[in-house]
Structure formats: C-alpha cells, structure tokens
Design a protein around this nucleic acid. Structure first.
Length: 744
DNA sequence: GACCTGCTGCGGTCTG
C-alpha cells in the first residue's frame, strides 16, 4: 500500500483538494514510520518544508481510523502564542473533512473556549508550556482524564526548547503527563536547525531510550549561500557617511566619529536593501533603535516613503504585528531592524537578505537567522555581515589591534559554511531554579507529596537527571527554611506548600520558569507604544529614540510605572539593560586562533575587512602572541591566552580575581591590569596550577540569575553555576599550560 | 558582553 493509501479517506480528500502532485519525501517517510511502529520521531526540515503536515496528516488519519475514548487525542506544544494560533488555523483546515475538534490554548484564548474544552476534552489541543503548567496546577486531578487517550505529543521548534529553562520545564511536564496516565505517549519533535545535534535531540526527546527515536530529514541540500563581510573603522569619515553632521565641539568629536561609522553602515544598507524585504539583526535593542532611526532619516532626506522599522521585545504588540504583516504580505518593500524577535517562530514570508551588525554570539543563532532568507527554490541565502572596529595606530592597545569582532565574525561563518558545526546544549547542567519551580508545581498538582515520590518524578524519571539525592535534599531544606517558607512537612511526612509557597503558586506569574524585568509603559496620547525596563536611567525632559522615532519625556510616574511622551526632533537610543550571560563556545574561540595563525584570506571579505584581518594577523605575530601564552606589557600588566570559550576563560579569570588580580576578559584572552602587592603573575598562575587559589566565589553577588534562584542557599547556587557556567576542573591545567608555554 | 518566550480568574463596561 502506498503512503497515500494508508491515510484515512477524509485526509486523502483534503490532499486531493490541495492539488498536490505528490507527497513530499519527509511526509511519505513520516507516514510510513507512524503507521509501521510506535516509535518516537524527529522531523527535521527547513522552514516551510511541510513538517506540520508530515506529522499531522498521519496522526489525524489514525484518529479517524480508530476513534478513541474521551480526552485530547493529540497534543501540540509550541513556544509562541502566534505560532499556536497559526498552526490551529492550518490544522482546522486539514480537519475540515475529518470530524476532529481543534483547541488552541494560550493566554489570549478566551476562558469560554478553555471551559468548554475542560468539560469535554477531545480532538487536538495546541498549548504553550506555560498554559500546560497552569493546567497541572489548577486542574491537577483532571490531568489523567484530559490525557487518557492521547496518542502523541508534537513539539514544535524543538531546537528552541532543547536545553533552555523552558525546555526542561516542558520535558518535566511531558513526563508528569505520562506518569499521570500510566503509560508512555509517543513523542514527535519538529525542527528546522538541529545541525550536528541530532543525537542530542533524540536524547532530549526520549531521555531513557534515545536509540529508538526515528529521524526523518528533508531532502534537497541547503540553498546556495551568498555572503559578504564588510569592515568599517570608527572615525573613517567618508562624504557619504558624514552627511549633515556638524561635529564642531571637540568634546563631541569622539561621539561623532563613532556615529560616522554607524552612518556609513546605515548608508550601505540603505543602498542595498531599499526596495525589497529584509531583516537587519542589530544585536542589541539599543542598536536596533540607532539604526532604525538612521535609516528612517535617510528615507526622509530622499523624500521616500518609510520602509525601515524597528522590531524588538519592548516595542508594542500592535506595532510589531504591523511590521510582521507587512513582511508577510510582501506587497510593499519592508526591512525590519530587529533582535532575535524575528529569529524563529511564525512564517514572515520570503526574505531577500539577512544583514548582521557585529559578530553574533553563537553559530546556531546565525544559522537560524540565515534560514529566514533563500526559502524559495532556486533563491540563494544572502548574508551581509558588518564588522565595526576602533581606529588604531602603533601605540594602540593590543586588544584593539587584534580586531576580535571581525575575527569572530569570520570564525562563525567558517564554522557554519566549511565545518557545518553549531553549538550543542550542556547536558550536565543541574537547572536548580527550574527544579524549584517543578517541585512546587508537583506538590500543587497532587495537593502534597512525599520527598521520595518527588525525587522519582522529577529526577529519577524526569529531566533533572544530574540532581543527586544529596543535592535534592539540600534543595528541599532550602525551600523549607523558615525565612523561605515555600514548603512544610505534615505529620505523616507529606510535603505541602507553606504559606509563602501557596501565595507564589496561586499567582499567575508563577507559570513561566523564566525571569522578567519590571518595566515602564510608554504612552503617547493614551496609546502604549512599548515598554522600557525600570533600570533604564531616564528623566523628565530628556529625549529618546524608540520604535525608530524620536520622543521627549513629558511625565514619569514611578507609582504606576508609566511614561508619557511626545514626538521630538532630537533623541538618543536608550540603554535597555540585558543579562550579559551569553557564553561563547570553545570551538568558536579555537577557530578564531586558527584564523589568526592562517594566511588564507576568505573571498567574502571586502577591502576594509581584508585590511582588518591583515592588521589582526600582524598584531598577533608581532606581539609574539602566536608563540607566548603569557605576554608581559609591564611588570603589572599582562595578557594571558587561554584560547578557550567563555566558561573556561571566565573560570580562570575568577580564580585570578580571588587572588587579588585586576583584569578584563575578551574572547580567549585575559588582560591583567593590576597585580596584588604580595604576588606577581607567575606566582599567581603557579598557585592556581597547584590548586592553591582561594574561593572561586569570593564575589558571590552574581550567582542569582534565574527566577527561583533567590530561594536557594549559596552552596546550591555555586553548584548550579559550576554545572553550566563555570568549570572548576579546567583551571589548574589551564594555568599550567600558560606557564609551560612561557618557559619554552 | 545580548536576546527571546509566557500567564488566571474575576469584575468591570459595552454591544446586540
């Protein structure tokens, strides 16, 4: 029987109605796998590759062919509300001849729809991890009924949920679902960019039995890639960049020189991107505003209609939808200057070109961004990478002369294009903040639980596999401390929520595992145009650039957290804060070292970028950094090379700091700016090599980074950091390596 | 040295 013939009649009818010439190969493969076995399945194909149909055509068919008892027959978990609404529409279309109810369930879905589904659970449920969490807490007793007849759980955008806090939460919820119904439920993962991580993805989809997970991959290799890396030097004043800038006062000169580079980049983007549909990834919200403003001014100067828009998380939903719709419809030229808001999620149509300002932090996000262009057969992916470096001369700082941003951008491109590599998640992470969340959630779901059952549910069978019984006990103790008061023990050894735990879990803000900052609302004539973090320093009368336009602050109310604004002629892009917790992989830094050692000049560099690469290589060899891992600039100032990623470099830096050294950290390099009285750098490194350094956590203030960290003890926070952000075991060998290199 | 994601129940007002 052919794959088509396996499907139920109403689904065959739907396919015929679509006029498809044939099933795509991933669809045929997925149908075969789902009909022939009970195995889990990962469907990996480019965006718009028909993954949703590949999963749901056979799954819906099976629902039609073997009608089941009450309960949701299929569950879809998606990371975005917009994606769920989108997919619900597509599934309703597929189900038009099959009598199957489709229920989207997220924060914007009306209570009436949810109430109806709770009363009569059936068909397909599409839900976010947070709404599923809420379901467990608010309807814990009904969970076995809801999912009694669930055939499969489909996880969309699996790559975005691999190793994140949300991913761990989702895996925990799926396991709890299986435990509630007392049987395994088939799992399907849909993903666009798994790269080298296919085995890891299998492990994340079915941790105790990854070998049985099937993989179906889209055929048709990656589209052709066209790329250019353009270099810019701050203070290089070109006529085109100079524009109408006056720059008379000497104090402003430095600022204006910086701005000249941004103008030159904006000018180039304006000339190349105008008239088509593009995404410009600016790397930070502050830079999104800066470039959106520069590009808007260019349009105004040339009397052209506006086609450049700012898009990031602080801009109002309304404005963001407007930009997304414009990109999607495609009848007007539109370029969004954006952050990772437009990196994944809903289909935004056919993008001509992706621009990236400054080197990205990970190859995987670069790949994800690139995947937004070249979606039509025969169309190339186009990447325009911009690198902006400081002007240098013979006495400039070595770090500036190494052109690290340019070198990193080249490393990222080479790793993707030549090595086909991207980052993997860290499987040894403890995820203690998320564990606290799930502990409270399971207790709420069951109305109380023994410590042993909690351990079995979450650690032995659930996703917190790295948490030992000893660590688990410590976590319970931390939550039970009187000052924490989240849980308490009943007479029969049952763990219950304490008063503070009740209050925490009862509030709707509990359901998400990730932290969100407090924000001001920005109001213009009563309409919200977006938000600014409370931490932003801002005063009445000052001016800002927001949503690509310029505004003056009229009123600032710190009780209601609102800011009233009016349009203005002047403005400066505000600082949006940020976590600064990104980690660059070992492999990226080691690639940077290879590039500095090599003589190859990639063909995709423009004239200035070639010059920057040349300068970097010259600085690298002249400084003897190519043969010395310890470079002394003066008795108290040195450069140490680890040529390792952030985890290892930061760990060695912390050890040095604990001994009293003052330092700054760069990609694979540590700059020692001052030494303590009693110790020079050699003695410091020897002490570390021999394991005699003091506490790595001398400065423990930055250990609280995740939502439920504040409830844990210092000791647990240190364990958590050591499991994923720091590496204690690498410190002594690294110090030894640096010393040995110096001797030879 | 950064970015993103999500949320309930109830009381209020307005519309058909």
């Amino acid at each position: 029987m052919s794959e088509f013939e396996l499907l139920a009649r109403p689904i065959q009818k739907w396919i015929r109605g679509k006029g498809w010439p044939a099933l795509r190969s991933i669809q045929a493969d997925a149908i075969r796998t789902l009909y022939d076995s009970n195995r889990d399945l990962i469907i990996s194909a480019g965006t718009a590759g028909g993954k949703t149909e590949a999963a749901f055509l056979p799954l819906i068919s099976q629902c039609v062919q073997e009608p089941a008892s009450p309960g949701f027959e299929l569950v879809y978990i998606g990371p975005l509300k917009a994606l769920i609404s989108d997919q619900a529409r597509r599934l309703e279309d597929i189900c038009q001849y099959a009598e199957l109810t489709v229920t989207p369930w997220h924060g914007d879905v009306s209570g009436a729809v949810k109430a109806r589904a709770k009363k009569k659970p059936q068909g397909i449920l599409l839900i976010t991890p947070e709404s599923l969490e809420a379901m467990f807490i608010l309807n814990g007793l009904q969970i076995p009924t809801f999912f009694a007849s669930t055939r499969a759980i489909v996880i969309d955008e699996l790559h975005s949920l691999l190793d994140s806090e949300r991913g761990i939460q989702m895996r925990s919820l799926i396991k709890r679902m299986e435990m509630a119904v007392g049987r395994p439920i088939r799992r399907l993962g849909l993903s666009a960019t798994l790269g080298d991580n296919k085995d890891l993805a299998k492990r994340y989809l079915r941790p105790n039995d990854p070998a049985t997970v099937e993989l179906v991959e889209g055929s048709g290799g990656a589209p052709e890639l066209k790329l250019q890396l353009r270099g810019y030097i701050k203070g290089d004043i070109t006529l085109e960049a100079f524009g109408d800038s006056e720059g008379t006062e000497s104090e402003d000169a430095a600022v204006n020189l910086d701005e000249a580079a941004a103008r030159a980049v904006a000018s180039h983007m304006f000339s190349k991107l105008r008239g088509s549909r593009n995404l410009i990834f600016a790397g930070a919200r502050n830079r999104v505003e800066l470039y959106a403003d520069l590009l808007r001014l260019r349009c105004e100067e040339e009397n052209l209609p506006q086609e450049f828009y700012a898009h990031h998380a602080n801009i109002s939903r309304h404005e963001r939808s407007f930009i997304e719709d414009r990109l999607c419809k495609g009848d007007l030229p539109t370029t969004a200057v954006c952050t990772s808001t437009l990196e994944l999620g809903i289909d935004i149509g056919d993008i001509t070109c992706v621009a990236q300002i400054g080197a990205p932090f990970t190859v995987s996000s670069m790949v994800q961004r690139l995947g937004r262009s070249g979606r039509r057969p025969g169309q190339p992916q186009i990447l325009r990478q911009y690198a902006i470096e400081n002007r240098v001369d013979a006495v400039s700082h070595l770090i500036d002369r190494l052109r690290l941003d340019t070198i990193r951008a080249i490393a990222m491109i080479e790793l993707h294009v030549k090595d086909r590599w991207c980052e993997s998640p860290l499987p040894q992470a403890l995820h203690l903040s998320t564990l606290v969340h799930q502990l409270l959630s399971v207790i709420a779901e069951r109305g109380g639980s023994s410590a042993k059952r909690l351990y079995i549910t979450l650690c032995e069978k659930g996703p917190f596999t790295e948490v030992t019984p000893a660590i688990f006990t410590q976590v319970l103790r931390a939550l039970g401390r009187e000052e924490t008061g989240l849980i308490e023990q009943s007479d029969n050894d049952l763990l219950l929520l304490g008063p503070k735990g009740e209050k925490l879990v009862e509030h709707y803000s509990f359901y998400a595992v990730f932290k969100t900052p407090e924000e001001y609302r920005l109001l213009h004539e009563g309409k919200e145009i977006g938000t600014l973090p409370i931490s932003t320093v801002i005063t009445k009368g000052s001016t800002i650039i927001f949503s690509g336009r310029r505004w003056e602050i009229l009123e600032l109310d710190s009780i209601s957290n609102t800011i009233l604004i009016k349009p203005s002629k002047a403005g400066k892009a505000p600082k949006f804060g940020g976590d600064g917790l990104g980690l660059i992989d070992d492999r990226v830094v080691s690639k940077m070292l290879d590039i500095l050692h090599s003589n190859d000049v990639p063909i995709y560099l423009d004239r200035v970028a070639k010059q920057l690469l040349q300068e970097a290589r010259q600085a690298f060899s002249e400084s003897k950094l190519d043969s010395n891992k310890l470079l002394s600039l003066s008795p108290k100032a040195h450069i140490l090379s680890t040529w390792r990623g952030d985890i290892k470099t930061n760990s060695l830096a912390l050890a040095l700091q604990s001994l009293g050294f003052k330092l700054a950290i760069y990609d694979g390099l540590i700059e020692i700016t001052d030494c303590p009285e009693e110790m020079n750098i050699f003695e410091g490194l020897e002490a570390i090599a021999e394991g005699r350094h003091t506490n790595l956590f001398a400065d423990s203030s930055n250990l609280v980074s995740e939502k439920f960290h504040p409830y844990l003890s210092v000791e647990l926070l240190q364990l958590d950091a050591l499991s994923c952000r720091l590496d204690q075991t690498c410190i002594a060998p690294l110090a030894q390596e640096i010393l040995e290199q110096e001797d030879s």
